[in-house]
Design a protein around this nucleic acid. Structure first.
Length: 140
DNA sequence: GCCAACGTTGGC
DNA sequence: GCCAACGTTGGC
């Protein structure tokens, strides 16, 4: 299984919106960036991801799971853009802030720390485990 | 709210 | 195919 990070501005699409969709999940649409799209094409059913709130909060607030692999983005007719569906798995007991990631030596190479503008990012297994520890996430 | 950084667009 | 200009993002 691989790990990812989905970034969103809470005013536009926040964790509560994601949770409200339940197990049906929701398209991660609106991505208009090739790198982010390529990452989504790599995703497989059951892959896990962090849900990150940008702007004011700047923290990882929950864990999501890929529930549909890449398909055309329904919000555009442009065939270049694809997206996956994700569903909420659970809220981070303790949100992991960007500052915490920057302060952790093991996370200094995270895409989130070095290329904060990429909206869909890969996360390594080591980073995943460490962030789960910081956030008090007991699941898998 | 500002501004730096990045990605994309379009003229040449 | 290069590169300047523009728009957007997101940390500060």
């Amino acid at each position: 299984m691989r790990y990812w990070l989905f970034k969103s501005e809470p005013n536009t699409w926040g964790w509560d919106d994601q949770v409200a969709k339940g197990d049906a999940g929701e398209e991660w649409d609106g991505v208009r960036n090739y790198q982010a799209r390529n990452n989504m094409r790599e995703m497989k059913l059951g892959d896990r991801g962090f849900f990150y709130h940008s702007m004011k909060e700047k923290s990882i607030v929950g864990v999501v799971e890929v529930c549909a692999e890449a398909h055309p983005d329904s919000t555009t007719d442009d065939p270049r853009w694809e997206c996956v569906d994700i569903k909420a798995v659970g809220r981070m007991p303790t949100p992991v802030t960007l500052d915490m990631c920057k302060a952790a030596p093991r996370l200094k190479d995270m895409v989130l720390v070095n290329n904060s503008r990429l909206s869909v990012q890969p996360v390594t297994a080591a980073e995943w485990t460490h962030i789960c520890k910081l956030g008090g996430w007991e699941g898998n």
